[in-house]
Design a protein around this nucleic acid. Structure first.
Lengths: 200, 200
DNA sequence: CTCAAACGATAACGATCGTTTCATTTTAGG
DNA sequence: CCTAAAATGAAACGATCGTTATCGTTTGAG
């Protein structure tokens, strides 16, 4: 990869990619648009990164770090175990309100944009889902004990649903709805059975 | 639009579009691929439909009808009010198991594929979300009474989450998880407050 | 200051995609 | 069977996109 690249150039590229990745989407963002926003020439991009996908993967990695940091801070602000588990919704709200208008989720959006994503992007997407699953399970442990995995899975569904709802037109669903469902769930951790009443 | 087009031709086009729409996605499906699968020449397509987007919109409309029908049948199979409200998850499972491998949701996938979808597609997407919201609210009425709208909103989040989870790699979440959350929710319809404990 | 490394501006390439055209062939109803 | 409408097959168009190449300019460390 491009060892001979200034740090400031790489930052400009990642900043531009990050904004467009979140507001437009990976597959629908032409390279020229990234270059224009970054104020960078094509040759510089391809000296710094092997391809457009590699650049997007790097931007996803950086965003993943920022997300984990915001989540950590929200967890640290919470007062008790219950608040620490629900802190993921505080972090979601904070990310949603950031200046660069987030359409929904950079990782789910990238996953949706490709039939099967290139390996370098698939790794970034997998990292996001894996870390979210693991962290939720860890935070659920003190509250749900042996049911922590199931509680974490249920919370994953709710978080993903909150994100996917941003794709639906019409009146946006109240941002507190997902959190309210999660609260109910957290207060009944033993009520999540793996398959209850599935057809056939 | 193309008045001079045989019904069989239109069906072949819609069948091919539907399969590719569900397995690949609207924006990432080349027209040539639709034509090849349908066994139809380009000129025939553009005599039947104004554009690729119009064809996709027609396929989405047809799929929307099939979805509502499957949902209706699942509701009819249910024994009580509770089962009728939860029948949406039976219909989801049935759709997922259909031969043409569904990646996640044709409507959310189309919404995610465009920055802002062309009007003809935006209408199809809006129709899906609106009908789902309205039907859930109607089915929730007997159980939740004045809280029916909030319960329907919460169920929308869970359904959308179940669908979005298919984009996440790794072990697929148990298909019964979303339904279990919904069951808990249905049994505590008055616990969904609009905004509980939101930050800042 | 110097000089090599990094960058900007521009153009061009090959590939892909949506769409149109046109001459030929097939279909279906009277 | 006949004829008008519909479909085929193949080719080509303009546009867009990812990527590479060229060349002159700027940066920053020794």
């Amino acid at each position: 990869m491009g060892v001979g690249t200034r740090e400031s150039t790489r930052t400009k590229l990642l900043d531009a990619t990050d904004e467009l990745l979140f507001s437009v989407g990976a597959t629908h963002t032409p390279v020229d648009q990234i270059l224009e926003r970054a104020g960078v020439s094509p040759a510089t991009l391809y000296r710094a990164y092997d391809s457009k996908e590699a650049l997007i993967a790097a931007a996803l990695d950086r965003r993943h770090g920022a997300w984990l940091q915001a989540w950590d801070e929200a967890v640290a602000r919470a007062a008790d175990e219950r608040g620490r588990l629900l802190a993921v919704f505080d972090a979601l709200e904070e990310f949603r309100r950031r200046p660069d208008g987030a359409r929904w989720c950079a990782f789910l959006g990238t996953a949706a944009g490709y039939v099967d994503p290139p390996p370098v992007l698939a790794a970034a997407i997998r990292q996001d889902s894996d870390s979210m699953r693991e962290r939720l399970r860890h935070l659920a442990e003190p509250l749900a004990g042996p049911h922590a995995v199931r509680l974490a899975d249920a919370l994953m569904v709710i978080v993903s649903g909150q994100l996917a709802m941003r794709l639906r037109p019409g009146r946006p669903v109240a941002s507190g709805t997902a959190r309210a469902v999660a609260e109910l769930l957290v207060d009944h951790p033993d009520s999540i059975r793996p398959s209850s009443g599935v057809i056939s």
